[in-house]
Design a protein around this nucleic acid. Structure first.
Lengths: 257, 257
DNA sequence: GCTTTTGATTGACATTTGTCAAGCGCGGCT
DNA sequence: AGCCGCGCTTGACAAATGTCAATCAAAAGC
C-alpha cells in the first residue's frame, strides 16, 4: 500500500471498507495513492474513461454535468466520500464531471484492485452492493425532491435537513456559498434570494452564511419533510444510508484521539 | 424452485442471472413464485417494507412517487425487467410505488434468497453490483435529462430514442398512452400536445399512436442527443446498460423458438 | 346503431422560474 | 483610509410550465 497509515484508517470508515478484513482491504487498496488538488481543479470531465475510484479525504468536490452550454450541479461532497463508484464497477465512462471547490486531498484507488477484491471476496462485494444501492436511493430521493417540490419547498427542506445535522440549534450555518447552494437546489442565485424572502414569514432570517429558524413548526408545515425524500442523516448525496451515522461517528472519534 | 421452467429460462436473460451457474441460480430463486395481476393494481406503496425482488415477465409497470397530493412517474417498465433491487439489497422500505398499467405477470423472488446468494457467490454478487451500477447511471441520465432540457427537447430526444429502438424506420409507434408518456417525460398532457406541435416544423407529424419523422436531421439539431444522457439501447429506466442488447436478443430468440 | 366514457387537443389565464441590468455591501488589497 | 472586485440582492421583464374549461374524436358498452 502506497498511502499513509493515518489515511488508511480514515478510509476504513467508508461503509464498504468497514466490514472488510485486513487482507481484503490491502488488496482493494493495492496501487492506491494520495493526491492534493488546488481549488477549482477539474478532476474528471463527463465522458472521460474512469480508471480510479476517488475517495475525498479533505476539501469539497462538486459533481456536475452540462449540455448545450447549460450546467447543473448534481451533488456536493464533503469528506469522507467516495465518488464515481458506479463507473468503476462497470469500467465505463463518467457521466458526471468532478471539480474541486476548495483545496482537496483525494485518495485514488485503481479500479482493477477494487473489482478484483469484489470478485474474490463475496462479503466485500456485498458491502459494495450496499453502497451502490444507497447511492441509487439517494438519486431517487433527489429526483423526487426536484419533480415534486417547487424551489421554495426545496429550500425549506434543505434548511430543516441542515438543522437536524447541525444539532437542532436555532441557528444554522450554510456550508457553501449561496451560489453553490442555489446550483445544488436546482435554481438560480436570484431565485434563491427570493425563496429566502418568501420564507421570512415562517421565521427564517438570513445574515450572511448564518440562518436563524425561529418558527420551526411553521417551516415544517410548508416543507412537509418525509423520510421518503429527505434523509436527515446522510451526506449531501453520495455515500448515504444507514452506514453514514457509524462512519461519521468513527471519523469524529478518530479526530479526538 | 416453484416456478415453471419456461419462466426460469426467461428470467435467466436478466443480466445478473445470466452469468450465474445453475446451483447459484437455483439458490437465488429459492421460494420464488409467479403471480398475475390485473391492470391498475398497486403492487407496492412507497414506504412499504420490501420482502421480494420483483421481476416483470409480462405487461407494464409504472414506478412512481407522490408528495403533498402531487404525483410523478419515475419509470415505466416492460418485460423483462427487475425492480426495487436496491431496497432488497438494503432490506429497507420502498422509495417508489409500483402499479400495473396492464395485466401483468410478475415473478417474486424472496429477498433473503437473493442476498444469501450474493454473500455466498462473489461472481453473482458482482453481477448484481453491475446491475445496481447500471440502474444508478440510468438515474443520473434521467436527472440530467430533466435539469438540462426543456420539455420540447425531452420529447425530441424521446422520439429519437424510440426511433433507434424500433429500427430507424421513418414511422414509430408510441408504446404508451400519451398521458402516460407525458408523465414519464415530466410534463402535463396539455404540454405534451404543445410540444408535439412545436416539433411539426422539424418534420414530426402525429396520428394517434404513430409518429412520422420526416426530417431527422432537423430533429437532431434541436434534440442534440448524447450518449452522456441518452441510452438508445436501454429499457425505459431500470435494467439498462450493456447487458441489455444481449438480453433482449435472447428473449427474441426464445420467442421464435 | 346509438350512447357513454375516456383520452387528446386547444385556448385563455395563472404561476413559476429564468434573464438581464442595476445597485448594494462586505472583504481584500495597496 | 480608500478603492476595487465579487457575491448577493432587487426589480422589471420574458419564457416555460401548469391549470382550468370547453371541445372533439375515438373507443367501449348496451
Amino acid at each position: 500500500m502506497t498511502i499513509r497509515n493515518s489515511d488508511a484508517e480514515r478510509v476504513r470508515n467508508i461503509s464498504f471498507f468497514k466490514s472488510a478484513d485486513d487482507p481484503t482491504f490491502s488488496k482493494a487498496m493495492n496501487g492506491a495513492f494520495l493526491q492534493r488538488f488546488p481549488a477549482n481543479t477539474t478532476l474528471l470531465m463527463e465522458g472521460d474513461s474512469v480508471d480510479f475510484l476517488y475517495i475525498l479525504l479533505e476539501g469539497t468536490v462538486e459533481l456536475g454535468a452540462g449540455w448545450k452550454s447549460k450546467d447543473t450541479t448534481l451533488a456536493i461532497l464533503r469528506p469522507v466520500s467516495t465518488f464515481i463508484l458506479a463507473a468503476v464497477v462497470l469500467e465505463s465512462d463518467a457521466l458526471m464531471s468532478a471539480v474541486t471547490l476548495e483545496r482537496s486531498e483525494i485518495l485514488m484507488v485503481p479500479g482493477d484492485s477494487l473489482r478484483r477484491s469484489m470478485k474474490e471476496n463475496a462479503a466485500f462485494g456485498f458491502a459494495v452492493s450496499e453502497e451502490l444501492a444507497g447511492c441509487y436511493r439517494g438519486l431517487v430521493r433527489s429526483i423526487k425532491n426536484h419533480k415534486l417540490r417547487d424551489s421554495t419547498e426545496r429550500l425549506a427542506n434543505y434548511l430543516l435537513t441542515q438543522r437536524a445535522r447541525q444539532g437542532n440549534k436555532p441557528e444554522i450555518v450554510l456550508p457553501h456559498e449561496k451560489r453553490v447552494l442555489a446550483a445544488l437546489l436546482g435554481m438560480t442565485p436570484e431565485n434563491l434570494s427570493r425563496a429566502f424572502s418568501k420564507l421570512s414569514d415562517k421565521g427564517v432570517s438570513v445574515e450572511g452564511a448564518s440562518v436563524r429558524l425561529d418558527n420551526v413548526a411553521a417551516l415544517e408545515r410548508l416543507a412537509r419533510p418525509t423520510p421518503l425524500i429527505d434523509n436527515h442523516y446522510a451526506q449531501d448525496c453520495n455515500t448515504m444510508g444507514k452506514a453514514f451515522t457509524e462512519r461519521q461517528q468513527g471519523v469524529l472519534d478518530q479526530k479526538k484521539a
